[in-house]
Design a protein around this nucleic acid. Structure first.
Lengths: 186, 186
DNA sequence: CCCTGATTTTGATCTACATCAAAAATCAAG
DNA sequence: CTTGATTTTTGATGTAGATCAAAATCAGGG
C-alpha cells in the first residue's frame, strides 16, 4: 500500500496535509540484504514500508538477535535512537527488496506543529515499539515458546516464507533447534 | 531531592523556566499503600519522586506482577497511557509515603513549546521506560536470575529493605522461592 | 545437473527455574 | 508478650528449552 493510502485509512488527509507530506518525505528503494541503519549511527528517520520486509537486529555475544520485523504498511525505525538522538544499538536490514517512505525527525516535528492530527503517527510508532516490546516481555515470562510461535503465525502467517528460521527463532527468544522442533509436531 | 534541584542538575533552569515550572506543576503527597493510578483510567500525568518509592504493577492471571519501581529522583508514569492517552493497564502504588511533583501531559507540551531544553525530560522518561524495558527484555533472554538480581542490587542496593521480596521477584521475572534461594547462597 | 555453502532437522543430554507443599521467621495489633 | 497473619525459607520433584553434534535438505551459480 502507498503511504498516502495508508494515511488516508488512519486520518483525514486534507489537500494541505498531502502537500506537506509531499514536501517533507521522500521515497527510497533498497535491495535485499542492504543495510539502512548501522549500529553506532544515529537513526534520524522513520521509514514507512510500502512494500517489502525490514528487520532490526543487534549482536548479543557474537550472535545476531532479531529485534523486530516490519512488513508492508508498518513503520520502522530504531525507536530509541530516533526519540533520543543517541547512536543506534541496532542495524536495520532489508530482508526483501523494499519501497520505503522516509520521514526525518525534524520533518515529523514540523508536521506535528502544523497538523495536530499527524500526532497519531507518533502514537502508532510508540505502539509499534513500546507496546509490542511490552507484549513480548510479558510473553517471555508467561507463555511457552509454542504459544509465542502460534501467536506470531496468526498475526504474521507468511513470515516463515519470507524470513529465515534463525531470525524468527531469535525474535521469539528461542534457539533455532527449538523452533524447528515446535514446527515439526503439527 | 527537590524537583527543582534535580532539574538544575540536568539542564540550566532560567528564571523564566523556573517560573513556568512553578505554574505548571504541583506537589502531591501520598501515604504508604495509596494508589495513584488505577488500571482502566487514563494516566495524564508524570510524577517526579522527590522522596519515597512508587511501583507500577498489573495483574497476570490473578497474580500481581511488578513492572517497575521509581525511587527518589526518578520519574514515574504509566508510560504507554501517558503517551497515547489510552487507559492504563497498570496500577501505580506508593510503597512508601511519597512527596511527588505532578506534571500534566498538556503542561509538559507547553513547556516543550516554550523551553526546548525541557525536551530532555521527555527523553529521560523514554529512557526510563523504553530503554529499561529493552534491557530487561534482553536480560530475560540472556542472563540468569542470579545475574539479574545482582545487577538490580548494584543499581538499587536498598530496594530489598524497601520493598517486599515477592514484588522484587516478579519484577525480576522469577518466583519468590527462586529469589529466596538466590539470596540464601551468599 | 552438480557442487558448495547455507539452512533446517533430528537426536541425546543437561540445567535453570517452576511448582507444590510445608516449616520457619517476621510483623502488627490487642 | 501473645497470637494470628503475612512474608520468607527450605525441600522434593518436574519440565521447557538450551547445548552440542551430526545428518539432511535446500538454493543458486558454474
Amino acid at each position: 500500500m502507498s503511504f498516502h493510502s495508508y494515511l488516508s485509512s488512519i486520518i483525514t488527509v486534507s489537500d494541505e496535509l498531502q502537500e506537506a507530506f509531499y514536501k517533507l518525505t521522500h521515497t527510497k528503494e533498497v535491495k535485499k540484504g542492504q543495510l539502512l541503519v548501522l549500529a553506532g549511527e544515529r537513526c534520524n528517520d522513520i521509514y514507512f514500508v510500502e512494500s517489502g520486509l525490514l528487520r532490526g537486529y543487534y549482536y548479543q555475544e557474537e550472535k545476531e538477535i532479531t529485534h523486530w520485523f516490519a512488513r508492508e504498511d508498518e513503520f520502522a525505525t530504531c525507536f530509541y535512537s530516533f526519540i533520543t538522538h543517541v547512536p543506534s544499538a541496532e542495524f536495520i536490514e532489508a530482508i526483501e527488496p523494499c519501497e520505503l517512505v522516509q520521514l526525518p525527525y525534524a520533518n515529523l516535528q514540523k508536521l506535528y506543529a502544523s497538523f495536530p492530527e499527524t500526532e497519531r503517527i507518533g502514537r502508532l510508532l510508540t505502539e509499534a515499539y513500546y507496546v509490542k516490546l511490552e507484549g513480548r516481555f510479558l510473553g517471555l515470562q508467561f507463555t511457552t515458546a509454542k504459544e509465542r510461535y502460534d501467536d506470531l503465525m496468526t498475526h504474521h502467517p507468511q513470515l516463515l516464507q519470507r524470513a529465515p528460521l534463525g531470525q524468527i527463532a531469535s525474535y521469539l527468544g528461542i534457539t533455532q533447534e527449538t523452533l524447528s522442533r515446535i514446527r515439526a509436531k503439527q
